[in-house]
Computed example of a mutant assay.
Amino acid sequence: MKAVIVRDRTTSGDVFHERVLEFSRVPITVRDLIRERVRAEAMDFNRNPAARVYHGLVPPADAQCIPVGDLVEYRLGSHRRIEWEPQLARALEGFARGDYFLMVDGRHVQDLDAEIAIGRGTLVSFVKQSMLVCC
């Protein structure tokens, strides 16, 4: 397994979330990376039946976007299961729209089909253009 460090950053460079994703085959594409990230976020949320705040790349369709300082929380009225496939579609649309961009080891990657060679300490930053790009 190869690991990638995934960080969420503001355009000013502040890191507000970090996780590690593992892949069994390499290289991966940007699309593969986004898919695995979104799937992992949905699984994390679904494991906690008391959760009402979704910590993900994009909000679920019916979430309220609540500003919290320089960040935004995605709040649901009550807990429900999040299906990752619709979240993936929203994330890919957001990438195409420019709601966020990716930096891989300091290099801006713009193509969903671009390959990412995963090495020791590969760092991917998801940079949201505006924290208020929301629902």
Rank of each mutant, 00 (worst) to 15 (best):
F95W: 01
I5D: 00
R25P: 09
T29Q: 01
V124M: 06
Q87W: 00
E83I: 13
A40F: 10
A42E: 11
P60R: 05
G106T: 08
M131N: 12
F23C: 04
V38W: 08
D105P: 07
H108Y: 03
A3T: 15
P67C: 03
R81H: 13
R80Y: 06
N48R: 13
C135Q: 14
M103G: 04
A51C: 10
S130C: 03
V72C: 07
L112S: 11
C134N: 02
A61R: 11
R52H: 11
A91F: 09
S78W: 05
L132Q: 08
M43P: 09
G69F: 00
R35E: 13
S78I: 01
P86K: 04
G56V: 09
C134P: 15
I5H: 05
L123Q: 10
R120H: 12
S130D: 07
R107S: 10
C135D: 14
I28G: 10
D111L: 05
C134K: 07
Q64G: 04
G106E: 05
E85A: 15
F45A: 10
T10N: 05
G121W: 03
L123E: 13
R9Y: 06
V15W: 05
R75Y: 09
Y100S: 11
D99C: 10
R9W: 01
V68E: 01
F23N: 00
V15I: 09
S24W: 13
R47H: 09
A3L: 13
E83Y: 12
G98L: 06
A51P: 14
L76S: 05
L102Y: 05
A40C: 12
F16M: 02
D99V: 08
R107Q: 03
D111V: 05
S24M: 14
V127I: 01
D111E: 11
D14V: 09
C65W: 04
S78M: 08
L33Q: 06
Q64L: 08
G119F: 14
R80V: 13
R31G: 14
Y54R: 10
C134M: 05
M1I: 02
H55I: 11
P86L: 07
G56S: 07
I5L: 00
D99K: 11
R52G: 14
R120V: 12
V58W: 10
E73M: 13
H79T: 03
M1K: 14
E85V: 15
V127W: 14
G119L: 15
M131C: 08
K2I: 13
E41G: 06
R81I: 10
E41P: 03
F16G: 07
A63V: 00
D70M: 06
I82L: 14
M103Y: 10
V15P: 03
K2D: 04
R31Y: 15
I82A: 07
E22P: 03
S125W: 02
L76K: 03
V6Y: 01
D8L: 13
V30E: 08
I82E: 02
Y54K: 12
E36Q: 15
V26D: 04
G98T: 00
R31Q: 15
I5N: 01
I116E: 00
C65E: 03
V4T: 00
C65L: 04
